[in-house]
Design a protein around this nucleic acid. Sequence first.
DNA 1: GAAATAAGTCAAGACAATTGACTTAATAAG
DNA 2: CTTATTAAGTCAATTGTCTTGACTTATTTC
Lengths: 406, 406
Amino acid sequence: MNDAREIRAKSGTNHEGTSAHNRRVMIDALRLNGSLSRADLSRATKLTKQTVSNIIEELEGDGLVLSLDVVRKGRGQPSTPYKLVPDGAFAIGLQIDRHVTRAAAVNLIGNVLVRAEANLPPGGPSRGAKVILDLIESVRKELATLSVQSEKRLVGLGVAMPGPFGMDIVDDDPWMMAAWQNFPLLETLAAGTGLDVGLQNDASASATAERMVGVANGLDHAVCLYLGYGIGAGLILNGELYNGANGNAGEIGMVLTPPRHAGERHQALEHRASLASLYQHMGLDPADPALHTKLAAAALSSEPSLAGWIELAAGDLRWSVQIIETIFDPETVIICGSAPEPLARRLMQAMDPLLPSIAERRTRRLPRVQLGMTDPWAVALGAAAEPISRAFDPRFSAILKTRANG
Amino acid sequence: MNDAREIRAKSGTNHEGTSAHNRRVMIDALRLNGSLSRADLSRATKLTKQTVSNIIEELEGDGLVLSLDVVRKGRGQPSTPYKLVPDGAFAIGLQIDRHVTRAAAVNLIGNVLVRAEANLPPGGPSRGAKVILDLIESVRKELATLSVQSEKRLVGLGVAMPGPFGMDIVDDDPWMMAAWQNFPLLETLAAGTGLDVGLQNDASASATAERMVGVANGLDHAVCLYLGYGIGAGLILNGELYNGANGNAGEIGMVLTPPRHAGERHQALEHRASLASLYQHMGLDPADPALHTKLAAAALSSEPSLAGWIELAAGDLRWSVQIIETIFDPETVIICGSAPEPLARRLMQAMDPLLPSIAERRTRRLPRVQLGMTDPWAVALGAAAEPISRAFDPRFSAILKTRANG
DNA sequence: GAAATAAGTCAAGACAATTGACTTAATAAG
DNA sequence: CTTATTAAGTCAATTGTCTTGACTTATTTC
């Protein structure tokens, strides 16, 4: 029917897809509920007891689940609960920031087992790539000392760095984030480590972390408002991270905000509500290694210039939250980022009262806005959580055939 | 493991899920590509020739596909292309608007076969429900005269009405849209028609229509900016309509816009860029039956008050498009709605040049903004397209088990 | 005319979930 | 203290769906 005309279609599926999905569903259920018996799993997943038994046996054989003590409760044969084996799988996450890179190893349930960081030399990837590969290697070595099986059970490498990706680069900065984005990073890392590599921006990584071990755990619709050097949103929609057509969904830094006062020009959100704007406002040096500590201290004091920025930024964030609620209709909005926790907390407080929005409903179960992780390691954790999610979370794409046969 | 504690888990799947998915994938491929041979389908879906043959045979038996003339092309046995049978399935769509309700019947490929409209009496659902049921009944009867099989092949009823849904009602208007939203409409319609009923807001319905037969056909990431009495966005993300946690995603009317000039208060977008705002600006009566014609005429003239509104609204839309691009990273933004086409066209032109955004990339294949349907029947069409999509489009939820056995 | 190529079929096989009867082990009831 | 009831979990056979590999058919190219 077609010469070279491209045929567009989604993939079909087969037994393998079915089986893979059911395995993922069971792992997901165990992660979400802590421990469940085979009978529980059967009811929850709508699969038969027999099927659940078969899959559990398989998962147990693979070292992904283990049985706990028998539980007596009411009539009937006592049940044997199962839970995930924490060290049933590992993943490594890498955060590439302006002047520093962090790597972390996590296990199947999101515990951080190893962390390591290194300074990135200025000059971008030409010099930095080596630093990164060494850092990953050292994390991998250390992980191997904690678990003999770590190498065998390593499911991938997740990378997080500031977006947006794939843009025609216009401006650059001394730390050459743009150069990083043009560099064939994924290929280099895949070749250098032999691992499957995934990429997210900071905000998405944060959301991934919140979903695995944070306040977004078990939520299918949540947005992480990530306040870092820039500002971004990590989108969890229908239980999966949403990336958009080009991987740039949620890059809200370029959104134009309402002017604060008469005569002010419209400004991009990231010039008003981001740590970069705070540094500028307070005349701080972004490269100062003690910056985080200083900011934390300032946040606990009554520093007037900080208070001024908080007041202004909270206004923009209040507006941002309202837009996010209005556009996404999420269960909750999570404030996270690399700001020191006292600062994030003060920002949260300053955002109160929130603007009226569609999110104000009596049937709400969760707060409209919650504080998420502010740990500087959260992004690396999210980066590491991504391969775990890719390997074990139920998702449409995991069902589809990836190669043809016949 | 649990007393009454609720266990949260996703559903598993089985052979039926596999088969259902593969059927949907084939139908989707045929819809998207017009006609394909079994060999084409096998390559495109990654299923084996044999599997494709089996499914095609089944679909042919179900009257959903039919074979075309054999095509000779190059070496090898000539291929037999298949295409969808237009009248292989039908659905009815219902639009409930302020003072009017429209019903349309479409077939499997989105052709509108029947349309009918009725005035809604003031007073909300207490009197309107009957009008609606009668209208649906008349469409159904007329459809039956066009196809003997229509009743057997009717897959559902789709309803579209202005959102947001499930809110604590604050203000109301004479046409009592709020009352409609509180009324158990879906239950009433399901009981009154015996059909499966789905609900969307206007903007989502518009997006559904654009995806089935409009400029979003085949796109996996697109946003429809719907300009009606209010304003909303219909979100196609990952190839599916996105509804949010409570079905209100895309209800952007409440977004606060940047002030137009010093001293102006922040205003909700729907008070500035919506037909309601135009009516107010021009002193038009929204209930005037000739309104659409008058507006169309005005749009073709050089009416200064209309030109003034266009200038203002275009500014807000420009900003809205930039936010949408920044947040969703879609392949394209589609302007649609119930404004007369000349008006929509002028608005589009007035939006040029668009604000700089992440969407400006050299690798773009589609325009950043495109004009979609402005037909007053587009929403009813989208409403009717929804059950077709629900029944035939590949989607994650269609794979999952819905009832337990064992 | 023979070789190459491609579409499509046939029949057997493989895989994974389902079915229904059965076993095991506890509590509740008399 | 015995028996009935309830629930967890297993066993073995069955079913549904896709895959496999060999085969047939039809066309073009050499």
